[in-house]
Structures are given as C-alpha cells and as structure tokens.
Amino acid sequence: MYGSTNLSEEDAKRMNSTVEDPEKLEAFESRIARGEKIEPQDWMPVEYRKQLIRMIEQHAHSEIVGALPEGTWITRAPNFRRKLALIAKVQDEIGHGQLLYSAAETLGKTREEMLNDLLNGKSKYSNVFNYPAKTWADIAVIGFLVDGAAIVNQVINSKGSYGPYCRALERICYEESFHLKQGHDNVVYLATGTKHQRAILQDAINRWYVPLLHFFGPPDKMSAHSEKLMKWKVKLASNDDMRNQFLDQYVPKIWELDITFPDPNLKKNNDGIWEFSDPDWNEFKRVINGGGPCNAERIAVRKFAEEAGRWVRQALMNPTEKYVVPLA
C-alpha cells in the first residue's frame, strides 16, 4: 500500500540469471569509475541490485527497530528539554526508516515485503539494537556513541554509487549530527553530575563497549572481502577502517570526561591505529542468529505493531476521502 516499486518487466525476468551482458557490465563499471551515480531506471547487474536491496533494507530495519530501545525512555525523560529532544530524535529515526524503505523500493522490493522479511527473520538489522537500554544513561550513550558509530558508517556509504541511497544518506547524516549533539550534551551532564549520574554513565559505557566494537562487523581478516562490491562502490571502507575511525573520534571524548572503557588494552599506537582486546566474535554470531538479550522482544514488538495495525491499513486501501486541503 505504500508506494510502487520500480522494477521493469525485463529487469524482473533477469533477477534469477547470473550471467550479465559483458558490454553493459563494462559500461556500468566505467560509469561508476567516473564517479557517476546509478539511478533506478539505469541498467545494473542483478547482483548489484540484490546487494543494495539487502543493505538498504537492513539499514531501514535498523532505524525502526533502533527506535524501540530509545522509544521506551521518551515517557521517562527527566525534564522538558530532554523529553522534547528525545521524541524528536526517535521520530527522526522512524523518518529515516521511511526514507530508506522508499530508496529500497526503487530497486524493486516493496515495503510490505521488507517488513515481512524482518518479521520472519529473513532480513537482519543492526546487532547493536538487540541490547537493552537499562537506565537513562543508556539513552545518553546510544545518542552519542551508537549514533556516532552509525554516522561513521553512513558518511562513508553516502559516497557510494546508488543515487537514491546516497541522497537519503546525506539527509540522514545531517539529522544524525544533531542527535550526536544531544547525545553528547546528555553524556556531559551525567559525567559532570552527581555520584549517581556518573555511576550510571560508567555502567552504561561498560555494557555498550563490546556491542560498539561489534557494530562495524567482524575484523577484515575474518570477513569475506568482496573486491567486486568495492569496485561497484556498494561497500566503500573495510570494517577495520571504520572501527578505527570511530575509536579515533570518540574514545578521547569519553576519556576527557574521566570515564573509562572496560578494556585495559585500549590505546592508540604511534601509527594512528587503535589497539583493543579482541571482543568475543562468537557472541556477535550468537546475537546475529537470534540469541541476543532482546532479539525476541524487538521482533515481538514489531509483530504486534504489524498485526494490531492491519485493520487500519486495510481500511485505508479503500480510500473514500480526497486529499484534505489545509484550513488556511
């Protein structure tokens, strides 16, 4: 019901083939090499389309699932300023989801199909949202560090080759940079506040440290490297590079508040590369495969929303009202 997708009949037929026309492929690749953007109506390899759908869809799911741990704190935010900032922030995340689902729809998969795949487990969302937000300090840490990590990733991806995704990301990054400011402000208030406030902040940092290292995915030595995805500018930086960039930007900002990370080996080497204890990558796999503390709860909430709202969507399929003209 949300919109139309953009897959031509010819492209739909090609979706199951693995052989590409070499001339078209070469033209496509040289366009990317020249820095041109690929647009929805343009020819593209089937695999490029599939990879982008997978990536944008996961990103969209991450936005709407990511709204859940923070959303539960809107009603508990401790003053007007924080409450208004948090609602606006979570609303932005939902809006990013909406924007990204639309970007993915241009590649031929509908929002319904994507949401169904989220619920039946076929498509994933960022692992980091399978951890609970236990105290108000978690909201500060999520707003500053999880959003910070997301920005590292998204700024890089916004230089990619698919036009609609890049444009969505540019707008998203612009809004995320405000989230970062409110997150940082919140962290600073807690760090410079009472004993209780500092204690909950330190506790939150201790719990989010490993999920944050996991956020960028397995180390390069462990993950299958796809040169093709790099060449097609679907992937633009390695997991390790992004993780290093994140640590470089954010660790000093936490240290300067006299808050620590739970890793005695965390330090920056002379060559500018951050060193840290290898986080448990088995836990990462376990959480991805549904074994994290909140996987079941997150999907249950989304299922509830889908099912409880079905009658509304059905009723809207039968539109009897025309567009409402603004009153003034």
């Binding site: 949300y2 709204a67 959303g71 809107i74 609602i87 979570v90 939902i94 409880a308 709202g309």
Partner: peptide
C-alpha cells in the same frame, strides 16, 4: 505510539503531535 503505529507515517504523526 512512537515505534508501534499501524504504519510508519502514523508513528511520525503521533510523535509530532506529542512534541
């Protein structure tokens, strides 16, 4: 309603009105 509306557009609407 933020996060659980019948469609994303309604999450956004209720969230705006809440603000």
């Amino acid at each position: 309603w933020t996060g659980i509306g019948p469609m994303l557009e309604e999450d956004l609407a209720f969230s705006s009105m809440a603000q």
